[in-house]
Each structure stands twice: as C-alpha cells, then as structure tokens.
Design a binder for these strands. Sequence first.
DNA 1: CTGTTAGCGCGTTCAA
DNA 2: TTGAACGCGCTAACAG
Lengths: 343, 343
Amino acid sequence: MLGRMATIKEISRKAGVSPTTVANVLYGRTAKVSAETREKVQAIIEEENYTPNMGAMMLLKNNSRIIGVIMFTEPRKNETVLEDPFSSAILGAMEREIRESGYYMMLYTTSDEAEVVRLSKAWKMDGLILVWVPGNICRIINSSIDVPCVYIDCFFEDDEHTYHNIGLEDRMGGYEVTKYLLSMGHRNMLFLPCNPIFPGGDTERFAGCKDAFAEQGLVLDDDASRPLPYDRAKRLKIYLEIARKKTHTALVFSSDFYASEALTYLQEQGIRVPEDISITGFDDNIFSRLVQPRLTTVHQDSSKKGTLAIQMLVKLIHGVQVEEVRVKLPIWLEIRNSVQKLS
Amino acid sequence: MLGRMATIKEISRKAGVSPTTVANVLYGRTAKVSAETREKVQAIIEEENYTPNMGAMMLLKNNSRIIGVIMFTEPRKNETVLEDPFSSAILGAMEREIRESGYYMMLYTTSDEAEVVRLSKAWKMDGLILVWVPGNICRIINSSIDVPCVYIDCFFEDDEHTYHNIGLEDRMGGYEVTKYLLSMGHRNMLFLPCNPIFPGGDTERFAGCKDAFAEQGLVLDDDASRPLPYDRAKRLKIYLEIARKKTHTALVFSSDFYASEALTYLQEQGIRVPEDISITGFDDNIFSRLVQPRLTTVHQDSSKKGTLAIQMLVKLIHGVQVEEVRVKLPIWLEIRNSVQKLS
DNA sequence: CTGTTAGCGCGTTCAA
DNA sequence: TTGAACGCGCTAACAG
C-alpha cells in the first residue's frame, strides 16, 4: 500500500526465494512450487497489493491492453467535441465496456492522422476506436496501423481495406422524416447539416430526403441543403434570416442540438413553432424532450454505438472473425409536436 | 510508417551507426556526432516516424506521462456518470489541457479506492484527477498514492493531508438563489439534492439556503431537503406528488438537469410553471436555456473546473508550489422566468 | 573529436 | 527451485 508499488524482485527478496518462483506462484504453476513456499509467497503478494508494472509488460508482450479512443476534430473547430452530449453518451458506454473487458482507455482528440499512428505505436495499443474520421484519413490509418480499428460514424472512399464501422441507417432517417413532412403537406423544406466540411452521415441523410421526394414524383434539389457554421452567433443569424424569408415551411436539422437551439431562438424572436415554421431534429436525445413544443425527431441509440464498437473491437483483438463488418443501427421516427399540418 | 514502430536499434542499423549515436542525435548532443552522421541519422529518424516505446520509457524514467482521470460512481448508480452533460464539459476541457501539456489521458470509472491505487502504480501515472470522491476515500487515496492528486468537487473530512481541490462557491449558490426566492415572496421552498448518499456540494448548497432564511430572521429546517433517487420513474413520481400537495411554492434543484426534467414533466401533467409552482436550477448549462419558461439558475463554469484542475496538477507534477490549495470558483444568479412573484 | 560497449529498470520463460 | 536472457531507451564510461 505505502510508497511505490512492489516489484517481483522485492517480493522474492522478502520471501527469500527467486523472482522466478514468485512468477510461478503468480501464474498458478503449482507443480513448480512447494505448497509451503506457495502460501508464503502468496501472502506477501497480497500484502504488498502486487500488480505488474505495465511498462515492463509492454516491453515483454509488445502490447499494453490500452484501447485508444480517438475523437476527430476538424482543424477549424476549436471547441472540444466532447462537450456535445451525443459524444458523451458514446464515450460513457465505451468507458464502461472497455473497463469490463479488462482493457484501459486512452482518450485523445486530434485531426492529424500521423499523430494517431504515432500514438498507437508508442503505446503499443491493442486496438483503436476512431470517431468521425474523414474517409481519406481512414485509408491512411488502415494502411499504417497493424492493430484492429473500429470506426464510429465514418464513411469510406475505397474498398481496398476492410473497414469495421458502427454506423446508422442515416439515409433511412432522412427518408422517414421527409416522408412524414410530405404527408403533413410540406413541400418547401430546408435541410441543415451540422458538418460543413466532410461528406458523411449528413450526405446520406440528405440523400434520404431526396428519396422521399422522388417517391412522390417530386424533386428536392441541392439548394435545399444549407450547412451550419460552428459559430453560434452566425447560426442564429441564419435561423432568423431563413424564418423571416418565409420561403421554407419546414427546417430539417441533422441534430437535436441545433434543432432545439433554433427552436428556442426563433421563439425568442417572436416566431411561432410550428405555426410559423416547422422544425425536426435528429438523435432523439434529451434536448428533443425539453423544448416546447417537443421535437419531432429521428431516434437513434448513441450508447449502443459505443458498446457495440468496443465489443467488435475486443473480438477483433482476440482474433475472432466478425461477420457483420459495417453495422448500421436502426432508426425510427419519433413524432411529437414541432411539425404543423398544412392544408 | 508501415509495420511496427521503428526502434533505436533498427534506426542505428539502417544508418550504420550505434544506438548511442542515434540517441545523441535525438537529444541534440551535437558535440558527440559529426554533422554528416547527424544529418543521415536525422533523415532516417524522420522517415521512420520514430517515437520512443512508452513501455521502455516507463521502465527507465519510472513515470509514464499518463494523467489518470478517475470518475467516482456510486455503487448503486449503474448508469455511467459520463452521460451527464456536466461531466462531459469538464472532461472535454481536461482532455484538451492534458494533451496540450504533453500528457496522456487515461479515463477510468470506479467506486473502489484500491483499484485507483493499483491503477496509478501499475501505470506509473504522473498525476491523478479525482472527480466526486467521498471524503473518507480521499483520505485513503492521499495516504496511499505518492503522485500529485487534484480533486474536483470533493469535500474532505480531515486536515492531516493537503488536499488540492477545484470546487465551487456552493454555499453562496444556495444562499443567492434562496435570497432571491425570499425576495419574490416565497417562504415554503423545497431543496432537491441530486445525491442521496454523500455529503458534499449539496450539503453546502442547502446550508446556503438556510443562511438566506436566517438572514431574514426565518428558519429553514431539515425537512425542507428531499434527496432525489437515481431512478427516473421514481423521480417523476416525487415531482408530481410534491406539486399536487401544494405545500411548497418553490422547488430548488441542485442541477439544471433535474430542474428541467421536473419542469417539463410537470407541464405535461398540466401543472403550470411558474404560476402553480416555481422552479430553480443549478449550473446554468444548455438545459436551462432550452426549457420554456427559461430556468432561473445559479451559473457556474464547468469547463473551467477541468482546465484549472489540469493546470494545477501539471504545476504539482513539475514540483511548482501551488499557492491556492482549495479553489472555489465563483457563482452568480442568472434570473430568468421560472420563478413567480408572490403577493 | 567521434563513436562504441555495458548496464539499468521489470516481468517472463527456457534451460539448467 | 533458480540463473540467464530478452524486449527497449538512455547515459556513463571508455576506446579509437
């Protein structure tokens, strides 16, 4: 307990045996140690609360039992991604699953693939979780890293590598919400993706919106998508501008976070939701149930993404073949009160 | 880039020099290496994207540059604490500060102090951040661990050890909000702490509530505090029961999370806020600005807690004396629309 | 002046 | 039941 952690050498000295004998006791090689010695050594091991020095283990086994969790931030985005409640749900689930699987979690935020490679090798990581990594960088990482990688919400540009990904029925999400809006009489909708730079989930969701239009023999063109900036003040300006123009009857957001931000702000500016403009979200997290009116939104299970990702990664680490390489978790539409029926 | 990380030995072999020469180049001992050799070796180092094996470093230096971030969960609380937006704000700030200070972040959730001790020693951690640790466990940790520890939102039972803590003007928070309620004519308030087990911030806040009453020559007795259970369904039942009894005119919550939960739920049950009952929050996070009416709440800067904690820890690691051992970050009352003026 | 050999830190296994 | 050797980075001491 006190002072520094006991080493095998110290324990062996206290017990008056060799380090090898201590190791034999530790690993239950009873055939190699007399019962008497075994008990004496065991007692000291417990007394000293012995745990191996992970540095020595790394050197010896060439691995560390560390799972690196890498959250990609975009270079332009200065605030930390972790503050998003969506990532904290995933993170919480991962921490738990990593710990319960007997691994350790190293958390790192970056937008530099070289750093990821260096980190994983310096720490002899057993595996990596990569969240929101752009497709071109996934390719670099997969060809530079030789330990298992599981991606979360990533989209890949090539098929040279086998990518393991935990994703979502994004396209179906866009489709479902748009189909609903159409059924409520909306024809002029605006899609507001979160992410101004990378193609990814947002692109898929917008494709789903188009699908719903096409199904009705209608066309939703590319002008109907307006990416949101990272700066809150700029976003608010955009919300107001759009609502005042009255060219759209419905705003389709790609996250509950921005949807509730817009809803709240527009109300403060005297614009009624859904009477003046309809709003939909995406995620079905706590935000969608706090605002008044409650947000009609697309449900997804964020924690499950984290849990599944770790379970898949641990399988890969153990060399178990994973049948489903690209998981797409189901979504469903959660209808509440933020959409107006148009006559 | 490809395959495993290059070792000094491999680089020395490629350059046709000894490992020592490579080390001399790495550490800029120019006097010991000819300019020609230096450049040749330097080129290979960069080409191979060399980084030291952290396991070897741990063995050599007896530290790891790992900062352990330990989130205490209560044994009864099964859900992960990380999903709380409050902890994600702190966490995000810490991740950033740790990375920018050149350390690595290992994240771990537990309620077992022995595990904390073992973890910190096995990994030769340079320092620890401990969040929401009960006082009796702080004592054990401080006497068993010989690396710097900085606590966040902890309360200590003894003065044998020097505890470094980043906390909040909790008592002042309870005082300010209660003073405001009194000024609005409320005399029957109920304080609803988050944490049914440990004394801590909630106790301080409640003491602040009593201070405000005492200042007016009034008494707030212990019945005016009702801890909330972790089970959501049970909480909702409590909210409704209290509101229906009409014995209290104001509910003083210890977090925006529960305050907005209650506000939303009571509204769904046909109870008007603040006309039928007033509600106040604590934290001033996004929740308080999403609900309608906006929550009157006590402001605190969660991210700053994380940043300051890491800055203090890094100082301690570097052996720098820290003048302010127990930081209490300021709070202020944020008045919005969830409190009714009583005549 | 330039470069090398030797040895430490720790846990594990093979050969003795 | 034990000594020796290995994995890797770093530095003190030493050789060319």
